[in-house]
Design a protein around this nucleic acid. Structure first.
Lengths: 170, 170
DNA sequence: ACTGAAAATCTACGCTC
DNA sequence: GAGCGTAGATTTTCAGT
């Protein structure tokens, strides 16, 4: 079905996401907890139609989940930072093991594996500057595989809460 | 009410988030679309209790929203990169205007305002490497206020989907 | 993709502790 | 004030078309 959808039903789009799907995706990124009924009304279709669309999107892996966004201060995380890290030797084994172990640290929100000058970028969120310092000293400085790291405190973040579909590369 | 909660009812926590709240937060980060009934059952409380807790958390701003997580490939965004940017002069006016205008670009997922060597970090997601190149040339290179930028392609990202509460700084 | 009806859920309110 | 149970309103879900 996902294959046959590629050509029909899709206002000229190559991927299996038509305009109705795109609108569902947009609305659920904005508010994942609105009822299927509200969703259907906003789209101008019957609730059963909407439900089936959402289920199909989930089945196809387009919708990967629904997550509550929580105020960081309430989680005792008022200070955020980006830490760029170089590791040595730059082998698959070292990269995998470093990635796995730092991604399990509670202070770490995200680990990015990068191409270029730095090998990793860690997005961390901690209680305060003291704990940031402590994290760097206790969790990073001691690792033998780290050749160097550089920390930038984050003053502010602007996030695009709704990610739109970009035009096809063609 | 939020103030009186500070001392009673909070197993020694300073913030107004007790253990039940913390568990609600954890469960809603994992799956924001589960029914209030499921939530209540997982917590071992009545649905009406659970509903009131969730509403209170929302009212207090602890829960900021609910968002669907969408597969980037389905949005035509197979290539991600981090772009660190320096701007000059480093004035409030330049920072604010740069931040506002780049955060509106559809390719930009997040803008971080940083302390330290770099002034901004842009998290971008585009169709392919050609479009990344195009974005850099068309949207960044032309800006007068940019003193320099450096791009790192993201090979991989590991994200902590549930952010836990850290111990109080005290 | 819609309609309709049964099952499940939501949620306001009065109650107890 | 926090949590609970109930009941009426709403929503979900799935035939059948």
């Amino acid at each position: 079905m996902a294959i046959s959808r590629t050509f029909d039903q899709n206002q000229g789009r190559i991927s299996g996401v038509d305009e109705l799907d795109a609108e569902i995706i947009r609305l659920l990124q904005t508010d994942a907890r609105q009822s299927n009924r509200e969703l259907a009304r906003a789209l101008g279709v019957a609730p059963s139609t909407c439900l089936e669309r959402v289920r199909a999107l989930t089945r196809r892996g387009v919708i990967r989940g629904y997550h509550a966004e929580i105020d960081h201060a309430a989680l005792n995380r008022s200070v955020q930072a980006m830490v760029s890290v170089q590791v040595r030797p730059l082998s698959r084994a070292v990269i995998e093991s470093f990635k796995d172990s730092v991604s399990r640290l509670p202070q770490v929100l995200s680990v990015f594996v990068l191409a270029g000058g730095d090998d990793f970028l860690l997005h961390v969120a901690v209680q305060d500057l003291d704990h940031l310092h402590g994290f760097l000293l206790d969790q990073l400085s001691q690792r033998r595989e780290i050749a160097g790291f550089r920390t930038s405190v984050i003053f502010q973040r602007v996030q695009n809460s709704v990610i739109s579909r970009l035009p096809d590369p063609a």
